[in-house]
Design a protein around this nucleic acid. Structure first.
Lengths: 154, 154
DNA sequence: CCGATACCCGAGTAAATCACTCAGGTTTTA
DNA sequence: TAAAACCTGAGTGATTTACTCGGGTATCGG
């Protein structure tokens, strides 16, 4: 039971967008530097996020990404699902088919649903509000000399 | 967020033991046939379960495995952990080290703990009691001509 | 209008993990 | 003593992961 880094990165990146929502749109270069994630990987990731309608993009210089909905309308589950992170513990292999389900088939679908409910109950806003994240975020912005709008030299 | 088949098999197998606890010990051949899991794989799996103290074994003909504790003392979490199924969604890669944790580090350790609590609150007995499992189990035993104690011919 | 910035896209790939299998044991019972 | 069963280490093909690469195309400032 583990999460792929893709799912984890997706949540991190979405939080970054949420934290800098006031600026308008955020470039992946910024996200990459702040969150320490490879740019190429982020681009690939944001394709999925966009396809799922979680973010909008603006092309060209001064472009970037922004949340397609409000903070509170996006859940952890939404993000994970968008990042191909299926929240499904159930079986689909050889030992368990539709007509001859295994002993635990019901159990896992049940648990999966409960996990989904749980993850769907946490909004991006909930996450961003947390004290932990707030302090980390300001630290990140300060480290970025000059903060966001200016950014003169490399 | 998915479960490996190893974890799933472990739970299935443990439930099989629990369901046939009255017989004394259960051979892996029986479990293999009833639950449709490769014998060799089960043997490998039961090494882990034994090492973790969840089952005891009796060697030789008429031998087999049995639960090392009561139904109610064994949790889903216990079984999954024994089957090398770590219940940990947190990061440990490049983007996130101890001194420079990523934005979401706290979030994932938090979630992991909640998941663990949840899985630890479900005992093997809880699972076995469920209507679903009961009916499936009797079906499995009936299909096995002659049921458990007798088992004359192959 | 040109070059820099940034999004967009398909494909490829090394490393890791998974889901097993195999080939041998050793112990116990009938 | 043969069969049943547990025990063990090692190997392996397939799949998935976590990326990278090499090209685009749109937009803005000068």
């Amino acid at each position: 039971m583990k999460l792929t880094t893709k799912g984890r990165y997706a949540v991190t990146a979405m939080m970054d967008l949420a934290l800098h929502a006031k600026i308008g749109c955020v470039s992946l270069v910024d996200v990459s530097e702040r969150q320490n994630i490879s740019l190429a990987y982020l681009e690939q990731l944001f394709r999925s996020l966009k396809k799922s309608g979680l973010v909008n993009s603006i092309r060209g210089a001064k472009g970037g990404y922004m949340l397609a909905k409000g903070d509170k309308e996006i859940s952890l589950a939404d993000i994970l699902v968008a990042a191909d992170e299926q929240i499904n513990l159930a079986c689909g292999g050889s030992a368990c088919s539709e007509n001859t389900p295994c002993l635990t088939h019901g159990l896992w679908t049940n648990l999966s649903n409960q996990f989904y409910e749980f993850l769907d109950s946490k909004s991006l806003n909930d996450l961003v509000k947390s004290r932990d994240v707030q302090t980390m975020a300001t630290m990140q912005d300060v480290t970025q000399i000059g903060n966001i709008p200016v950014q003169i030299s490399k």
